[in-house]
């Protein structure tokens, strides 16, 4: 009975005794499927609708009775206030996220190559120990981390966060590259070895040229997670020197609930990662897959 739902795309099964009912039933099932998909689609879009609509409402129009309605006039004051509050932080976030993603991607690529294709004794153990760093709650290292960064005189704000994103990004970058390099044919590496090339030569001339897709996945992943980070940011920066998540939280949690500005701010703060998601979606999903440990 429920079978028709998943049967759509398979070659037609042997005709049943009453083809008419069967066909009708299949059509009903397909309609139900698309209806369900559409309902879920609209459900998922509700918060996006609210963000967009509310960001254009003036303070006077942010009344409960008009909560779900379109604005009567499209007011941009909220966007202006949000931009004033967030624009300095946006620049700082780019200055933090881009270099830190590149550094951890480069280190991750080297680790991934060694762990997948130029293995040494206990390589799997080292890999597993590194991987653990990806799962720990950072609260378990936070207090000594605060003391360490103060002790080393690393300035709070972007410099501290740069160090942290590089270090704690290493496990996932290593994982993604390791899985990626595991798909590079062993023969190519062997051939290079037989030709007498050392490890660095093999890495630089055989492996690196093949690495572009791996780098795209890792950079997107690191960009997104560093951009969206709030935990390290709240411990190591403030609204004057921190990334955009801190400024947004500051803007949104003010005593006076300025909904149009905070919703506009949420959209501004999400814009870069959403663009990355829309433009490079295929690789974004690739990163999500590699993030699931199983190679």
């Amino acid at each position: 009975m429920t079978t028709q739902l998943v049967d759509d795309a398979t070659p037609a099964p042997p005709r049943s005794a009453r083809p008419d009912t069967s066909r009708r039933r299949r059509r009903t099932a397909r309609t139900a499927k698309y209806l369900l998909l559409l309902v879920f689609l609209m459900g998922v879009m509700i918060p996006a609708y609210v963000l967009f609509v509310t960001s254009f409402k003036s303070l006077g129009e942010a009344t409960p009775t008009r909560a779900w309605a379109l604005p009567t006039e499209w007011y941009t004051g909220g966007w202006e206030r949000a931009w004033d509050a967030l624009s300095p932080a946006l620049g700082r976030t780019f200055a933090l996220v881009i270099p830190s993603s590149i550094v951890s991607a480069v280190l991750g690529s080297m680790n991934g190559f060694v762990l997948a294709r130029w293995r040494f004794p206990y390589a799997d153990l080292v890999f597993t120990l590194m991987l653990f760093g990806m799962f720990i709650p950072y609260q378990a290292v936070m207090i000594p981390l605060v003391e360490l960064m103060q002790g080393l005189n690393v300035p709070s704000g972007i410099p501290s966060l740069f160090v942290l994103h590089v270090v704690f990004g290493l496990p996932i970058c290593t994982l993604i590259f390791r899985n990626y390099y595991a798909s590079v044919p062993e023969d190519m590496i062997e051939a290079s070895r037989v030709d007498g090339a050392g490890m660095l030569r093999t890495y630089a001339s055989i492996v690196l040229p093949l690495s572009a897709p791996g780098f795209v996945v890792v950079l997107i992943w690191q960009f997104t997670s560093a951009w969206n980070d709030f935990l390290f940011a709240i411990f190591f920066s403030n609204a004057q020197n921190g990334p955009v998540t801190i400024s947004l939280n500051f803007l949104a949690s003010g005593q006076l609930q300025d909904y149009s500005a905070s919703m506009a701010g949420a959209l501004i703060a999400s814009f870069p990662t959403l663009i990355v998601y829309i433009v490079l979606g295929r690789w974004f999903i690739g990163g999500l897959m590699s993030g699931s440990v199983k190679s």
Binding site: A48, V50, T54, N228, A252, G265, A266, S270
Partner: peptide
């Protein structure tokens, strides 16, 4: 798509 948005931003809405 919600996956690409930070918890802080989605928390606002």
């Amino acid at each position: 798509f919600p996956m690409a948005v930070s918890f802080v931003a989605s928390g606002v809405v």
